[in-house]
Structure formats: C-alpha cells, structure tokens
C-alpha cells in the first residue's frame, strides 16, 4: 500500500509535467489543425534557458533565496521560450499557412531537428546538471520499512501546475483573447470577418503554449537536475500521446491525459519493468488511436454532408 501511494505521488508529478506540455500540442492543433512536432524541443530549449537563468541568478547575482531563484528562473524561462516559439511560428509555420496540409508538419519536424541540433552544438552533447534547487521532504507515513514521502519539489510542481492551469483556464474561458482563440478554432474565416486578427491570435497561442512548456521545462530541470539536448523528444512524444489520449483539441483532456500517462508510466516501472516504460506509454497511443480515436474528452467527428 505504501509503495502504491508513493508511486501515485511520483506519477502525478510526472503527469503534471506531461500535462503542461500536452496543452501546447492540443492548443496549437485546435487552432490551426497542425501537430507541432517541434513542441517537445521547445520544452527542451526552455529547460536549457532555465538552466542558464538558474546559473546566472545563483552564481553571478548570488541570490540565495530559493523561492526568489525559482520565481526568477520561471519568469526568464517563460519569457524567452515564448519569444523562441513566437519566432518559430513566424518563420516556419505562418508562411506555409494555406499550403498543403503536410507542409507545416514537415516544417515542424525540421524545426524539431534544428532545435535539438542547435542546442547540441551550442551547449554540448553531454548532460548538463545543476545542484539540487530544492531539498527536503515530508514523510507521510513510516509504519513499515518503506517510508512514503512527498518532497518539497514535488509539492512545488503540483502547486505551480495547479496555479497555472487556473490562470490558463481563466485566460481561455473569460478573456477576450481566449474567446478569439476559441472562435478561430471553430471557424477561422468567420472570425476574421468579425474583425478578429487571426494571425495575431495564432501567434498568441504559440506564445501561451511556449510559456506553459517553459514551466514544464523548469519543473523538469528542478525535478531531475539534469538536462540534455535530446530530452525534448521522448517527453514531447509522451505529451503528444497524452493530448491524443485526452482528445486532441480538448484542454481539460490534455491535463487529464498527461496525468494518466504519468501514472501509467510510473506504475509500469514500479510493478513491471522499468526498461519497458516507454513501450507502455506508447502502447497507450496505439490503443487510443485504434479504440478511442477521439480521445477521452474529444468530440466525435460528425460527418458533414
């Protein structure tokens, strides 16, 4: 039982990170119908930006307060990653809008390769690590020889994820920008005719997606303490799986899908074989596509005649 609870805690933590990335996939898919394969690498880039920011904040500026460090790193990572994704959209996707469907997809794959190679060359191919940002844990139960712990960093990940999802929900549901995004999602041409600047709305979608990915990247760095240029791919594809599982295009679906994937992966590693954890996660992708193609929260496609 203790073992199970511990895995649950670990799984939700991992799932929160996947969920934040998955929102980026699902938002971009919702608004322009494209799977942004570079999104995983944007996440990886954000972890590097967070790493650099963390080193600057601690080593150069010498700010000792952990909370202050974390907030500064988050803000810097979100700002710069947003800028990166804004430029990517401008350069690699917008010129191809209105082109054939595969064009932006191919461009996205190219962008993904470009980003990971750029980081490999500029930052070096080795693992980059940081000293632990946050240490300490709550011991929840110690009845047997297996203690159940909830570390501070896990708690921070849960808290920040919850806070951001709340802010994000408010943005999409209640603000003018959110309404414009949903309108563009349903009928881009009509939204333009009502005076919505579709290009700007799409740009803002990429910016928001990147900001959430940057939070995930910072959390990832804080949680594992290491990052390398190839770290974008696997978490990226898992987050994509999460988005598909939740129903691509559905925002709550992305979060729920992310947490489910995190749990599946963690439990599989705990109870079966850690070597096959990626196989377990990607089997979910295949099974979802075969048996539940619209996902958990997706609307089934109504055929229009």
């Amino acid at each position: 039982m203790e073992y199970f609870v511990q895995q649950l805690i670990n799984g939700i933590t991992l799932g929160s990170i996947y969920g934040l990335i998955a929102i980026g996939y699902t938002m971009v898919f919702g608004i322009i119908g494209m799977v942004n394969f570079a999104h995983g690498d944007v996440f990886m880039v954000s972890a590097f930006i967070a790493l650099i920011a963390y080193l600057i904040v601690t080593a150069w500026l010498g700010i000792a307060s952990v909370a202050l460090d974390l907030i500064a790193v988050l803000i810097v990572a979100m700002a710069f990653t947003s800028l990166v994704n804004w430029v990517i959209e401008r350069v690699a996707y917008r010129p191809l809008r209105g082109s054939f469907r595969l064009a932006p997809l191919i461009s996205a794959i190219g962008m993904s390769i470009f980003l990971s190679n750029f980081v490999q060359v500029s930052q070096g191919p080795r693992n980059k690590s940081i000293p632990p940002m946050v240490q300490g844990e709550f011991v929840l139960s110690k009845t047997h020889d297996f203690p159940v712990t909830l570390s501070y960093k896990q708690l921070i990940i849960w808290g920040i994820t919850a806070l951001l999802l709340l802010a994000f929900w408010y943005l999409v549901a209640k603000t003018s920008l959110g309404r414009a995004q949903r309108a563009c999602e349903q009928d881009r041409k009509m939204a333009a005719l009502l005076g919505v600047d579709v290009d700007r709305t799409i740009s803002m979608t990429f910016v928001i997606a990147a900001a959430l990915a940057a939070v995930a990247g910072t959390m990832y760095l804080m949680y594992y303490g290491v990052v390398t240029f190839s770290d974008g791919f696997v978490p990226g594809v898992k987050a994509f799986t999460a988005a598909v599982l939740g129903g691509i295009g559905s925002l709550p679906g992305a979060v729920v899908g992310g947490i489910l994937i995190g749990l599946i992966e963690t439990f599989w590693s705990a109870y079966f074989s850690i070597d096959y954890k990626d196989v377990a996660a990607f089997s979910v992708l295949a099974i979802t596509l075969i048996f539940l193609p619209q996902g958990l929260f997706g609307r089934p496609d109504v055929e229009k005649v």
């Binding site: 603000t175 003018s176 920008l177 309404r179 414009a180 949903r182 309108a183 349903q186 009928d187 041409k189 009509m190 939204a191 009502l194 005076g195 919505v196």
Partner: peptide, 24 residues
Amino acid sequence: RLFPGMTVLENLLVAQHNALMVAS
C-alpha cells in the same frame, strides 16, 4: 456560420473583439 460550441452571448462578444482587445 455561427461558432456552435460557444454560447450565444460569447458569439456576440467575439464580434466586439476589437473594442475589447483595445480596452484590455
């Protein structure tokens, strides 16, 4: 060509998007 998934009121607010964006 309404936005079928949005409420009636939201449909009308999208039409006033520009004024709201400037104000916001």
